[in-house]
Amino acid sequence: MVYKIRDKETGKVYEVTIDEETNEITVYDVKTGKPVKTVNMTIEELKEAGYEVEPV
């Protein structure tokens, strides 16, 4: 599923895909559409880390 996340401190917005089964999150560069990095976190962990998470 695709989400937009926003860093509450910097205001930067990222587009991510989240595999609900493995909790693998792939972060994409919004301008190029290319993957930047992959992390292993849940949506709740993202929120605790200071991100706003919205489904696209």
Rank of each mutant, 00 (worst) to 15 (best):
D19G: 03
M1T: 11
M41F: 09
E52F: 07
P35N: 05
T22H: 12
K4E: 05
E52S: 07
P55V: 11
G33Y: 05
I43C: 08
V53S: 02
V53D: 02
V56Q: 08
P35R: 11
Y51T: 01
K31W: 13
K4L: 15
E48S: 12
T22Y: 06
T32F: 03
E52M: 07
V16E: 00
K4D: 00
V56P: 07
E9I: 14
K8I: 10
E20G: 09
I25G: 02
A49S: 11
V53I: 11
E48N: 13
E44W: 11
I18C: 06
G33L: 06
E45L: 06
N40L: 12
Y14M: 03
E52I: 09
E21I: 12
N40P: 06
V27D: 00
P55G: 09
V27R: 01
V27L: 15
G33I: 01
R6Q: 07
I25P: 00
T22N: 13
E9G: 08
T17A: 07
P55C: 11
L46R: 00
V36W: 12
I5D: 00
T17F: 10
M41E: 01
V56A: 10
E24T: 15
K34P: 01
E48L: 13
T42K: 06
G50R: 05
V16N: 00
P35E: 08
V56M: 13
G33A: 05
G33F: 05
K47C: 09
D7A: 04
Y51F: 11
P35S: 07
L46S: 00
Y3P: 00
K37Q: 08
E48Q: 13
V39D: 03
G11D: 03
T17N: 05
T26R: 08
N23G: 13
V53R: 02
N40Q: 13
T26V: 10
V39C: 15
I43R: 04
E45H: 07
I5M: 06
K37P: 04
E45M: 10
Y51Q: 01
V30L: 09
K37D: 04
L46I: 09
T26D: 01
K47I: 12
T26Q: 05
T32R: 02
E48K: 12
T38W: 14
E48C: 10
Y28M: 08
K34G: 04
T42S: 11
V30A: 11
E21Q: 11
